[in-house]
Structure formats: C-alpha cells, structure tokens
Amino acid sequence: MNNASGIVSYGYNVPRYRIRAEEIARVWGADGKRISKGLNVIEKSVPGIDEDTATISVEAARMALKRRGIDGKRVGAIFVGSESHPYAVKPTGTIVGEAICASPEFYCADLEFACKAGTAAMQIVHSMVMSGMIEYGLAIGADTSQAAPGDTLEYTASAGGAAFIFGKEGVIANLNTTASFTTDTPDFWRREGAHYPSHGGRFTGEPAYFKHTQGAARMLMEKIGTTPSDYDYAVFHQPNGKFPLEVGRMLGFEKKQLDTGLLSPLIGNTYSGASPLGLCAILDEAKEGQRIFMTSYGSGAGSDAFDFTVTGEIGKVDRKKTLREMIADCERVDYAIYSKMREKLRRD
C-alpha cells in the first residue's frame, strides 16, 4: 500500500492594496523609518472592501485546482485555518466547497490556532490522504487580520492566503515528516466579541515565537536526523521581517536559505497565510530533489514543523505566473482610505 502523501498543487491570493509602515507611523506620530527598519517591513497588504477570508480562500483554492486540472468533485476534505473567519458560526469551508464544486461529499471544519491554523489544516488533510480516507484534500491558511489603531501590530497585520491540495498521485513535494510543539502560553489572544486582539507586548518574542518555533524545528530535525545544511530552503512564520531571520540564524540556517520564502517585508504578517505563502514562493522556483524546511507559529501557542522533498512532477505545474509577481502588482493607499477599507471609521 502506498502511504506517501504530499502536495499535489498549490495556489495563493494576496489582495492588491498596500499601506506603507511609514504612512501608518505618520498618523500616530512615530518614527516611520525607524519602525520600518526595526520590523523589516516596508509595507503590508490590505484587503479590498469586498474581500475576506472566504474570498481569499476560494481564489487560492481555485488556482490550485486549475493549474493541475483537478476536478473539485475529487476533493474529499476541506479544512480552512484562520483567525478571521467571516462568520463566528458558519464554516468558511462550506463556502469554499460550494465554490469549487466539491459539495456535498467532503469532510469539513474550520480551524483556529492564531497564525498556525493553516499548517494544522495541512497536517489533517495529509493524514486523511495517507490513511486512504480521501483521494485529495484541500488545506487552506488565510486571514484578513485586524489590529487596533495605533497598536504596534497595526504595522504588520495584513491579508492573504494559500491553498494546498494533498494527494498520493502527482505529488510535487513529498511531505516526509511533520512535528508539533504546543504549550499553554498567553502571548496573544482575542476574546469572543472583541474586535481587536490583545497581546503581551515583548512577551510575544522569547517565550512565545522563539521558544515554540525552535522547539518544533529541533524536534523534527532530531526525529529524522537532519541538520539545517540538508535543506535548500527554509521558511518560518513571519510576524514581521525580523523574527524569521533571527530564528533561522539561531537554528543554524543561512540567510540565502530564507530569502525566497521571506515575504513579510513586502506584505506584512498574513497570519494563517504567512508561512504557507512563503512555501508557495519557494515552490514557484524549486527544482526536483530540493528539500524544504517549514515551521509555522501560532500564538497561544504552538509550532508545526515540516520536511518536504520536491519531486520531478513540479515540472508539470504551470508556474509562468508567480506569487512574487502577484505581490508586485499592487496599489498603495493612504491611512484614510485604509481606515475606510478596514471599517475603522465609526459611523453610528
């Protein structure tokens, strides 16, 4: 019995609007150049008024299906990870399922684990494919995150998402191993009904992001006996442009392994979409035999680490248009338009 499962196709979506970190700083009387440099974030993506986690998920899923000519009816599971599902009660996955014509025969639930819900979805559909429950499974990580006006998170909280189809046939990247590191750490949270999240300030760094990312990464490498030099690419959760480079260095990765998957300087923190989008940028240029290391991070807190090997099937995927080209095709907005788009203006 063939138990191997991996990524058969991938798709992505990043809204076309951008706001520069310096423009946000201008409004709040902060030193924009210093903040932008400190975070290593030039600008962040902003969803249009008619975009949300469901629309981003559907666009990413349709791209993934289309580029391999896979009929949505063959998708047996849809798991969408996000902290900004459009409904508090009514799954985003049901909308995606109908939009890709997978309905009604598919397993489905929405996931939430801050910024790592998308990678948790990948682990679930991967397992379902391995067990033989389904032929193809769709895992999505997408968000349109909100940050309180003037909060440090406002410089980075952005929008975007990635979709991965897992299967056994036509695999472009084998998922060799995955490992998770999870604890109860209150570094960032949002209570039911609260519009904006709360966070523990500096507490979000050392005991949260760095501890869990390194924990999962080391756990995985110990499990299979690899070292950073075994990988051609590595991608980490990117709440800003600084943390992923730091954690990569702490683990022993070189900057050149991290550059391809590092998108946060250009689009900010896409939350559940962050490390998955980085993986998409890597798959856009990866070649047969190359090995990819990925570790997500979700506040609360936990990290999922993955080890992939790219196969010869990657040559069969239409990669003429890339994620970086989609990101480059953007339109900048000022803080006033951004406030309207993100419904930050009170009208009642």
């Binding site: 008024i49 008619d50 975009e51 949300d52 469901a54 629309t55 559907v58 666009e59 349709r62 939009a99």
Partner: peptide, 9 residues
C-alpha cells in the same frame, strides 16, 4: 478581456 473573481457582493 476580463475574468471572473470571487468576491463579497
């Protein structure tokens, strides 16, 4: 030339 996209209406 145009193509359809999925949006909130």
């Amino acid at each position: 030339n145009v193509k359809s996209v999925f949006r909130k209406v």
